[in-house]
Design a protein around this nucleic acid. Sequence first.
DNA 1: TTGTAAGCGTTATCAT
DNA 2: ATGATAACGCTTACAA
Lengths: 354, 354
Amino acid sequence: MASSSAPRRATLADVARAAGVSTSTASVVFSGKTKVSDATSERVRATAVDLGYLGPDPRAASLRRGRSGIVAVVLEGQLRTAFLDPVTIPMMDGLTDGLASLGAGVLLLRDEPGEDEASPLTTAPVDAVVLIGCSGRTRASLEVVRSRGLPVVVIEGDAGEGVPQISLDNREAANGLARHIRRLGHERVATVTLPLDSYRERGVVNAERLARASVDVTIDRLAGVREVYPDALAVSAGSSSIDEGVIAGRALLADSSTRPTAVLAQSDLLAVGVIRAAEELGLRVPEDISVAGFDGITLDGMGPHVLTTMVQPAVEKGRAAGEQIARMLRGEHAASLHFTCRFRAGTTTAQPPA
Amino acid sequence: MASSSAPRRATLADVARAAGVSTSTASVVFSGKTKVSDATSERVRATAVDLGYLGPDPRAASLRRGRSGIVAVVLEGQLRTAFLDPVTIPMMDGLTDGLASLGAGVLLLRDEPGEDEASPLTTAPVDAVVLIGCSGRTRASLEVVRSRGLPVVVIEGDAGEGVPQISLDNREAANGLARHIRRLGHERVATVTLPLDSYRERGVVNAERLARASVDVTIDRLAGVREVYPDALAVSAGSSSIDEGVIAGRALLADSSTRPTAVLAQSDLLAVGVIRAAEELGLRVPEDISVAGFDGITLDGMGPHVLTTMVQPAVEKGRAAGEQIARMLRGEHAASLHFTCRFRAGTTTAQPPA
DNA sequence: TTGTAAGCGTTATCAT
DNA sequence: ATGATAACGCTTACAA
């Protein structure tokens, strides 16, 4: 069918010419932005089919319009790592929702380890950028974004001066959880934290390590607990996962003489791990030991337990980010938004053993 | 600083003029495609800074180049659903890897429920498309993609005529697992399948339901098992998750008179659920009952068990898709690729009880 | 309802 | 090493 030498693709101009109309009319036939008589519309469409015209080229349209309809989301590290965190996915879902009014798609970018100068972020035809978990390497991305003059929103991170951010009441929520534990009568309480920095070292969090910590979420949630239990023993996990929770849980619970009666984990996954570790050691939850989490994710495979936790509005956070982006692209003023967690009493916390 | 009326952004032409060079020279200063004397390069860069030029506009560049550097990935349904499947994430990681040689980013699109005519896929400035799990609604996406004349690769799905696809030896692998079970001496074997279609109904899979099934993965894995155990009882799960595995497991194991000695689950998550159900019922795995999975994902929180399973090369599948896309964009011929699973003997299968 | 015309900001080719 | 020039394919005031 096709001729042998690469036949230049038909363009809107070709169609217009062949149909005997102006390019503007042809354009409008496809965009529907203006009324066109049925007759011409038909004729143009037919000619388009004849010539094998495949519809307006989005690249040309986006140049002309000054919009590509694409918003970049910059995630830390490997996709794998980012999506391991169960709150990421609902958040992304919310984001696509919030962006829906723009009809914008989401371009996934990872912040490259740095050496490579040509970050895709430099050359991607995006209208705006969402930065997630602005820590360490993400700051470099922020620089690129600012130097390109793109609208940007940061989720769970501090981008400083006038960058709208979507934040969570991490300290207050952790504090609330700790108060719940205190109300139950617990006195010996320990906490399992998320990683303190990109090195993700496990172990007891002392003053020195804490001073060097760079992940705000971790710092804030810990601060909230320490407001109630200033001397709570804290151990850091290598990541937010059940396995890490098990490791931390064993470390915390193995020695029955120093064993806490309650453990506050900084994520639900870690909490589940702590529960596993407790069960391994023959401890019953919550009779022998209380465990609370953080996030309020829907956890597959939890069995009969309902985790006591702080439910964070993950979808809403994402949606809010999307909506602020939409505002900025409409030329409106975008604001920082602060979300609060909701306490959920579960079956994993109770009074300490007598 | 900035003047009050919206000051048109500086363009490359502005910079060139102000620096006293041609636009082509200015362009090359930024792209590095040709040698430029240090002197001019410096001057152009300095002028750019002076004028507040933010670098070449990717939208214009992509029109001129005919490339946007973006590849769309179409997922079924909500992001949430797509990413619930633990193989999706490594696959996406592989995909971004495979695409890295192009410097292309990945645009996440969900196949909309249909009514909305203006699918983002119609207007997104993408160079190519990857379709995942081509079932049902995804076919509509395929139509759009073809009518736009975009290069496309399908993962785990049949797009027919000349569309490169990345496939897995689902039937053979399931068969291998079943043979492993038979070698161990099992005779009463049941299987838990993935959903049969988009209705995702749970329950016994009879001939009638099987005839109406539309998900190839499910059909093929079941076929592989039935080659070895033609009469194996099959129950379908509502999704690939631990909770669904528990439900199916209870149904299968509750009645001790009809209880199978081995259960082949079509995914690792389902297998974990079956194991939970077994333990609930006081059955030991693998002493009382053997359980095998499928996928070979790294499963957080599995404890001491190592699942007997077929490890599928998820990352490689994604990478392969990316590489085929890269070939097509270079004008080379792209091929369909077939991947095979690798058997992994774990601790969850053994001889049937005596 | 349709046409005219002026870009959108860049890059590639080919000279010089 | 640099410059002139021609696209790239479309949208949108504005005019008719």
